[in-house]
Design a protein around this nucleic acid. Structure first.
Lengths: 140, 140
DNA sequence: GATTTATTGATACTCGGTATCATATGTGAT
DNA sequence: ATCACATATGATACCGAGTATCAATAAATC
């Protein structure tokens, strides 16, 4: 469990410590997006004695490895979501918080058009999509 | 000066107070994106005696009226940019911080495709584009 | 100009995230 | 196995963005 994350950490050349293993497991059993505070609470509830800083440090590491991404919810709060380390975009369910990834859906064309209109040379983009996931749609 | 913002505030039915007029003028003379702290510093430098809370309150008001938008920079910090109150997306220059708006550049098609692939019903989206503005491109 | 009500600025607070630093622990060499 | 040492840890303190509170002030309306 949490193999993928631990492998990535190993590959990144950092130590596979107790706190990191435990946190990776906690992240894995989470569904949808979560905040650093959520994780910290998870750990606290299980008396894991894991420090605040450690949580943030691991999230940063995982983020560097592309296994977790920081997204900005519509209300301006930050959340983290586990994901594959390839370029993609996120879909966030406004009802239950579930997230999915989608690959390139033709956004290249959009950036090209924006570049043409503005004269900018576009180097990066960020696209977040918000809506209702299939489950929540069928559930009412 | 700052007519547009003051008009909008008036239309919104709030009072046209001294601090609001002064801040609107300060926002107007800003270029590119700015943080609440930037604005506060502007005001402080001119000994305007404007409180922290007032700055945040005005930014929130302007945001509600669509005259200012909060964007998330790549490094995770929040910034505000003045803009038109129609749906659009933002281009941010990674070099100088300048911003421009572009209207719909075909993103409808992208959201439709993402919806098809994921089963989500997409209700909102957020797209931010980062790159080099024409000035910075020609300047080297 | 008086009155009413929204707005203000000071202060204190919350919350996400970071810096510091002495202690603990994983790891690679022995 | 154990040693040595670099890395990671957790406690604590800190920072910066944003919000709540509240008595004092100033727009708007009459």
């Amino acid at each position: 469990m949490a193999e993928e994350m631990l492998d990535a950490l190993d590959r990144a050349g950092v130590r596979l410590t107790g706190p990191r293993r435990k946190l990776a497991a906690l992240i894995e059993r989470r569904e949808g997006h979560f905040t650093a505070a959520d994780l910290l609470k998870d750990a606290g509830r299980r008396r894991m004695g894991i420090g605040r800083a450690t949580v943030f440090r691991l999230l940063e590491l995982l983020n560097e490895q592309g296994l977790v991404e920081r997204i900005d919810l519509l209300d301006g709060t930050h959340a983290y979501i586990p994901c594959e380390p390839t370029h993609h975009h996120h879909l966030v369910c406004l009802n239950c918080g579930a997230t999915t990834d989608v690959g390139d859906c033709g956004i290249e064309a959009v950036t090209r058009e924006a570049a043409r209109r503005s004269g900018f040379k576009i180097e990066q983009h960020r696209l977040e999509l918000f809506g209702r996931c299939p489950d929540c749609r069928s559930r009412n």
